[in-house]
């Protein structure tokens, strides 16, 4: 027996396997491509609308609205002022439009991730079986190289915004799911028992006790999700998502050092703004945890 060579499938069998799977998937794409594209059309419309709104409105108005939003969430003049300064510099350096596209993209991706992720996290917290099923899926979503799942997504949707959103959401949704699950599971059992003893239904327990007490943890997950969506904009630009990622990609291909650094720093600036804002918002949610008065 030959113990040096691994007993692998023959080349012919392997090729047949690949051809069968590829053929089946191509067939699936042919049949389901259009319906799926129609299904996701509202998402594309939302993203286009938001993008156009940010780009076509007077820049000073956009800046004012963003600053107001940041202040409302963080209640911190420092964060609001720093954000305005950063955006002014980014705009002055000629990246205003791309920055707006990226903000629109991250906003939509985060919205989708939160809308899908929080319910899934809740279900995982309620059922150990669900937890056992979803956890490996999340592991796979986080470790599978994103290029691998870009292939089927692009085959179905072609290049453009929707495949970009899907790729980003797949990559960025695990933290919000995991931390929702964790936050709910860590709610103190004695408080839950009290809720039970006063006759709470399952829904009342979730609404009055589990979600509010898990909220700081869930917010940490949302924060992570935002950061990860931003990290994906460069990869997403490979499948035609416009924004700050595209010039970076161009810079890599053509070795434009300054262009790469400037756009990279613009992404960092947005990341810091969003991180500080969501963290400050998360801290405000925990006001009750502060001792003393």
């Amino acid at each position: 027996m030959d113990l040096i060579r691994f007993p692998e499938m023959s080349r012919g069998e392997l090729r047949a396997l690949r051809q069968t799977v590829d053929g089946a998937f191509r067939e699936f794409t042919r049949i389901w491509g259009d319906p799926l594209e129609n299904l996701f059309a509202p998402l594309a419309r939302l993203l286009t609308f938001l993008e156009n709104l940010l780009i076509d409105s007077p820049w000073i108005l956009v800046l004012a609205v963003l600053a107001a939003g940041i202040w409302l969430a963080s209640r911190s003049w420092k964060i609001a002022l720093g954000s305005v300064l950063a955006l002014l510099v980014v705009g002055y350096l000629g990246m205003w439009e791309d920055t707006m596209r990226t903000i629109a993209m991250v906003a939509v991706c985060t919205l989708v991730a939160v809308v899908l992720g929080i319910p899934v996290g809740i279900l995982m917290a309620q059922s150990n079986r669900m937890n056992a099923v979803v956890t490996p899926v999340l592991d796979m979503m986080q470790t599978m190289p994103s290029f691998v799942y870009l292939i089927p997504v692009v085959m179905i949707f072609g290049l453009g915004k929707v495949p970009g959103v899907i790729a980003v959401v797949i990559y960025a949704i695990p933290p919000v799911i995991r931390l929702t699950n964790l936050g709910i599971r860590h709610v103190a059992p004695d408080v839950l028992e009290a809720a039970e003893a006063f006759g709470s239904s399952k829904w009342q327990k979730l609404r009055d006790v589990q979600l509010p007490l898990a909220l700081p943890t869930i917010m940490a997950g949302v924060n992570q999700t935002i950061m990860m969506s931003l990290a994906m904009v460069v990869v997403a630009s490979m499948i035609g998502v416009r924004g700050l990622g595209q010039p970076v990609l161009q810079a890599i291909n053509n070795q434009y050092f300054t262009m790469g650094v400037m756009n990279g720093l613009a992404i960092v600036a947005i990341a810091i703004i969003m991180d500080r804002t969501t963290q400050a918002y998360g801290r405000r949610l925990q006001k009750h945890a502060e001792a003393g008065k």
């Binding site: 004695d190 408080v191 028992e193 009290a194 006063f198 006759g199 006790v209 007490l213």
Partner: peptide, 29 residues
Amino acid sequence: RAFRREKTAMVFQKFALLPHRTVLENARY
């Protein structure tokens, strides 16, 4: 559930108050 809501109330060793609710909101829970 109806029995617990209308006929019983419970006080716990470790208080088991809702930390995100004020005293008033806890009392009316």
